[in-house]
Simulated assay, not measured.
Amino acid sequence: MKYSISIFNLFSILFVISCAPDQESGFIIQGHINSLENGQAVLSKLDLDTNQKIDVDSSQIINGSFSFSGTIESPYLHSIFLNDSLGPIHLFLDNSKIKIVGNIDSLENVTISGSREDSLFHSISLDAIFEKETGMNLMLNKNDYTFSAFVAYYQFQVNQISLDTMKAIMRGFSSDVKQSEYFHQVSTLFKTLEATSKSKSAPDFTVPDVNGIDVSLSDFRGKTILLDFWASWCGPCRKVSPDLVKLHNQFKDRNFTIISLSVDDSRDRWLKAIEDDKLDWTHLSKLDGWGQVSKNYGVMAIPQNFLINPDGIILNKNLTIEKLTERLDQLLPKSPS
């Protein structure tokens, strides 16, 4: 399954700008893009605690060239935007002298050199970050790279990895990686995943529905629930909507319902997606983006789902539609014919 994350969900780092960094301790980025008009380049990141995009530095573009310099406490993924509308160029930034060279008509194929961390980052596709086999290989065999802690942050969320295996992966990271912001985020995430694992009570919450009426998860005690995290802007979420409609129609008369919790921040887009996709069940959102409820469930990539029994106990997490259909058919008594 493909997952959707605001690409800036991949960018968080403790970042300190320095006017004249020592090349041994700081970074220098020198970029040149052929045929790029004069203007401005912006280096951005996202704070993983708030999921807010932050512009950390800007540089004039002169004759296709731009540069940034500074110091970061640990490697982290950043993005470079050019003249507002071009890019992003993704860069797993570390304290190195980095060169970026490319053409305006193929920014996705720029050449980035000089960074140990970025060389590993660019050796796989963004989609592969979510693939379990690729992720396990990186987390176990490249555990002296901060990029592998970054991979763990998403692998732990979306794949079926046992808590014991997660602990072993975390123990295996090098001492330098354990000092990174990504490892800190993984450690915090692990505690949340532990609290929302199979057989644990699903954290209760109260969130407004489409009519602005507060609805609590506990209001649905006595029913089997699929708690679905999604957003109108999430392509993979929208792609699975027809399958969710079929699932709902198949089991809605067997004491089952879906609660979709959106991480949207636009009411109009949220309501339009519900109508367009014909999602006829309970929809909740505080319209605050990645808010506290998603944090309480360890959800920072979507779609994700939790199957919850009538007593509010988590049965399964992130089951495919096929597995959900099979599981619900086992759990729910058929309606009398």
Rank of each mutant, 00 (worst) to 15 (best):
F11T: 15
S12K: 01
I13H: 11
I13Q: 13
F15S: 09
V16C: 03
I17G: 07
S18C: 11
C19A: 15
C19Y: 13
P21R: 01
D22K: 00
E24C: 06
F27Q: 00
I28H: 13
I29F: 06
Q30M: 01
G31C: 01
G31H: 04
G31I: 01
H32I: 11
I33L: 00
S35W: 08
L36K: 01
E37P: 04
E37V: 09
N38K: 12
N38D: 13
G39V: 14
V42F: 07
L43N: 01
L43Q: 00
K45E: 12
D49M: 15
D49C: 13
T50P: 03
I54K: 04
D55H: 10
D55F: 09
V56C: 04
I61W: 00
N63Y: 06
N63K: 09
G64A: 11
S65K: 12
F66G: 02
F66Y: 02
F68W: 00
S69G: 12
G70T: 10
G70D: 07
T71A: 13
I72L: 06
S74W: 12
P75F: 03
P75Q: 05
Y76P: 13
Y76F: 13
L77G: 05
H78C: 10
S79A: 15
S79M: 15
L82D: 06
L82R: 04
N83I: 10
G87K: 03
G87F: 01
H90F: 12
F92A: 03
L93H: 05
N95S: 08
N95G: 09
N95C: 08
S96W: 04
S96D: 08
K99T: 15
K99D: 14
K99I: 15
G102L: 08
G102V: 02
N103H: 06
I104S: 13
D105S: 09
S106Y: 11
S106W: 10
S106I: 09
V110F: 02
V110D: 07
V110E: 07
T111W: 06
I112H: 06
S113T: 10
S113K: 08
S113N: 03
G114S: 05
S115T: 09
S115V: 09
S115W: 00
S115M: 08
D118T: 09
D118A: 08
D118F: 05
D118K: 12
F121R: 15
S125I: 07
L126F: 14
L126M: 14
I129C: 10
I129R: 14
I129L: 14
F130C: 05
E131D: 13
E131W: 10
